[in-house]
Design a protein around this nucleic acid. Structure first.
Lengths: 91, 91
DNA sequence: TTACTATATGCAAAAACTGCATACCCATTT
DNA sequence: AAATGGGTATGCAGTTTTTGCATATAGTAA
């Protein structure tokens, strides 16, 4: 399922136009991102937690040439599924 | 930020009652979950991809006792941030 | 058509995973 | 409003898993 299909489903379920459904969805993702930008994890009970994970610098490798490369420290968004979410897929 | 605070923010941004904001949000998470239950990854352009990762059974260890333990195969929801999302946190 | 994303490759190092007790934070209930 | 219950974070050790490097191509999406 891609974003377009998701928006179409939400449009039906929420009785909104597709434009409104998309605007609503984007508002939610932006709100989550804003919180993460402020380094504040977003905890959704029963679904999961979004947090920014800091990754240390390390030595990598160019797979094409085999040459070693220094990789800078970086940050990425992590999603940790809530307990309830794990159970759904392990019953 | 927890779910309650997120709902409050959305209520303001979307001009909805808190009850409606929560209903909207839950509809979205449920829609995503339903797709995942059907083993269909959900790809949100510019945000990320949710997919179900299957993990094989393996031998683990109880860190407290050092005792070896057989770990059953399981599944968990993975979120892979989109390129745009990574850039936000690495500029 | 233009933009994004998945894939494939080898390999080093970071990170996740396991059980479990404790502490903590949040939500619900009285 | 206060109390209680439940989900979540933490630390621990060692093994498994993931990550991420460059880059072109193929596929999908806007």
């Amino acid at each position: 399922m891609n974003k377009k299909q998701l928006i179409a489903k939400l449009s039906g379920s929420l009785n909104l136009s597709k434009a409104d459904a998309e605007r609503t969805f984007d508002t939610i993702t932006n709100t989550i991102l804003d919180s993460l930008k402020g380094d504040d994890p977003v905890k959704i009970a029963g679904f999961g937690t979004y947090k920014v994970a800091k990754r240390k610098a390390r030595v990598g490798r160019n797979p094409r040439t085999g040459e070693q490369i220094q990789i800078a420290a970086s940050q990425k968004v992590k999603f940790l599924p809530a307990k309830a979410l794990k159970e759904v897929f392990n019953k």
